[in-house]
């Protein structure tokens, strides 16, 4: 098992979580981009159109949008469709308010920039209070056991 790549930032909100990354080159708003009934990106022009954010460590350059976003994570979480964590280049108030209500881990302004060093499918551990993110690249994981020790890699079905 190789050592993880470590990203650091100011403290975020939420608890420690670990999951697979979904990296969005485009910004994200729950109202503008998401079908909140399914957790699937519904905006046709969005780079991740048709993909679900449920259960992912969602990595994205920018939080966009207005008040719908502040409700969306709570409702998604109640229906099992929320992302595990969200890592933004820059978060905005509505996204953080939504994460606080929903109990979804959220961090921003990490160094190095997660958009540069995390790829979709990478294994990511997010520790918001410590201001720390650990990344095991997917390519490495194919050759090595999982970070939680020894069990075979399981990719999302």
């Amino acid at each position: 098992m190789t050592a993880p790549l470590v990203l650091t930032a100011h403290p975020g909100v939420g608890d420690v979580v670990e999951g697979d990354a979904l990296v969005s080159p485009d910004g994200f708003s729950a109202r503008y981009d998401l079908d909140r009934t399914t957790g699937v990106i519904a905006r046709e022009s969005h780079a991740l159109h048709g993909q679900s954010i449920a259960g992912k460590v969602f990595v994205c350059p920018l939080a966009k949008g207005g008040f719908a976003t502040s409700w969306a994570l709570y409702d998604l979480r109640a229906r099992g469709l929320a992302p595990l964590a969200m890592l933004f280049g820059w978060a905005n108030p509505v996204m953080v308010q939504g994460a606080v209500l929903a109990g979804v881990a959220l961090m921003d302004q990490l160094a190095p920039d997660p958009m540069q060093v995390i790829e979709t499918g990478d294994r990511v551990r997010v520790d918001p209070k410590a201001g720390r993110v650990e990344v095991w690249p997917r390519a490495t994981m194919r050759l090595h056991p999982t970070p939680d020790g020894g069990a075979p890699c399981r990719w999302p079905g």
Partner: peptide, 27 residues
């Protein structure tokens, strides 16, 4: 805390944003 606020500030009014479509059942 996330945004580095050092204190709270009193407000004169609030404007609620919450309609059932946006809130969902959980909201």
């Amino acid at each position: 805390g996330f945004f580095g606020a050092e204190a709270m500030v009193r407000i004169s009014a609030a404007h609620l944003t919450g309609d059932p479509e946006s809130m969902g059942d959980a909201g």
